[in-house]
Computed example of a mutant assay.
Amino acid sequence: MIKVTAFKWVPPFAQGSVRDIRVRWALEEAGLGYDDDLIGFEDQATPAYRARQPFGQVPAFSDGRVQMFESGAIVLYIAQNSDALMPADEGGRAMVLTWLFAASNTVEPFVAQLAGIDLFHAEKAWAKERRPDVEEMVRKRLGELQAALGDRNWFANDRFSAADILMTHVLRDLRHTDILADFPALSAYVARNEARPAFKRALTDQLAPFRAAEAADPALAGGV
């Protein structure tokens, strides 16, 4: 059975963003069942967990054949064995790889900088000084991304693929802002992917243990 590590609970701002959702979504699209392997923050630094994930993060993944960490690598592994996530022809596969890495290497660094400032350092003087430049770079990259998408529904081969899982996840990290509203094609792209049944199942499954933890300790719902 496939196992994916995930947190028992995270603060509200991180719910729906923790990267196990990428793997959950890929597995749902591929029609593969899996089990949660839930960990607490106290487990991250243990030798047992570091043996599975050297940085103490989630997700870690195992399927009886391989053990992996890094969500992008795991999604790629799943996609290589699923027609739903990657086409069979060499050219099509190459385009999926191209856009998958574009999401991680070209778009995400700027989005992650902005999210880090807004969510963790917003009141610090250096962050207030730095933020306008970071937002400008985010907007520049989004403009380029929207131009590349054009009037297509998906980035690779005009069909849904693993690349769209990563790109959508990256763009969702802007949902604490209204920036994406200025890029209607990208906003529609994210909404289109969030409407997919596989994404909805993945999101519901990620949120389920958080809701259970909050029901047991209502103070958690406030981010305590």
Rank of each mutant, 00 (worst) to 15 (best):
A94C: 09
Q15N: 04
A147W: 13
E90N: 06
T98V: 03
L142Y: 10
Y77S: 10
V23F: 15
A215I: 01
D151S: 06
R131M: 07
L207I: 10
P109V: 04
A60Q: 05
L145W: 14
P218M: 04
L114R: 08
D36F: 10
Q53R: 10
V224Q: 09
L149F: 15
F183M: 05
A45N: 07
T106D: 07
D35T: 15
Q146P: 11
N157H: 08
A115E: 14
F155H: 08
I78E: 08
V190F: 09
E28G: 06
A219W: 06
R22C: 03
L97G: 09
T106R: 08
E194S: 03
A84K: 14
Y49G: 11
L114I: 03
D63L: 08
F69K: 01
D173S: 06
G116F: 14
A6Q: 10
E42V: 14
L186V: 04
Q53Y: 13
T98S: 03
T168C: 12
R192K: 05
A147H: 13
E123F: 01
P54D: 11
R175Q: 12
V4N: 11
A102G: 00
Y49P: 13
I39A: 09
E70Q: 05
Q53E: 08
I2K: 13
R130E: 02
V107E: 05
A162C: 06
Q206G: 01
G64S: 05
Q206D: 02
E70F: 00
M95S: 06
K124N: 01
R159M: 13
A156I: 04
E108M: 02
G16E: 07
A115S: 10
R65N: 15
P109T: 02
A14T: 01
E70H: 03
L186H: 07
D36K: 09
M86Q: 15
R22P: 02
F41K: 03
A213L: 04
G56E: 15
R196A: 11
F110D: 05
D89K: 12
R192I: 02
G91L: 06
N105E: 13
A30L: 09
G222P: 06
D205S: 09
A30G: 08
L142E: 09
V75N: 15
R175M: 07
L166G: 01
I117N: 07
G222A: 02
P59S: 03
D182M: 02
R19F: 04
L180W: 07
K128I: 00
A181C: 02
F160N: 11
M1E: 14
N153H: 06
L174N: 13
Q113L: 14
E129R: 13
W25D: 12
M1R: 14
A115F: 15
G150K: 10
K3A: 14
E90H: 04
R19A: 06
A162P: 04
W25K: 04
E123I: 00
S62E: 15
L76S: 00
E70V: 00
P59L: 06
A79S: 10
V18K: 07
L27N: 08
L85H: 03
V111H: 04
M68W: 13
H176C: 06
I117K: 08
R152G: 08
A156K: 03
M86P: 15
A73Y: 04
D151A: 03
V4A: 07
V18P: 11
A122F: 05
E194L: 06
V224G: 05
A115D: 08
F160K: 07
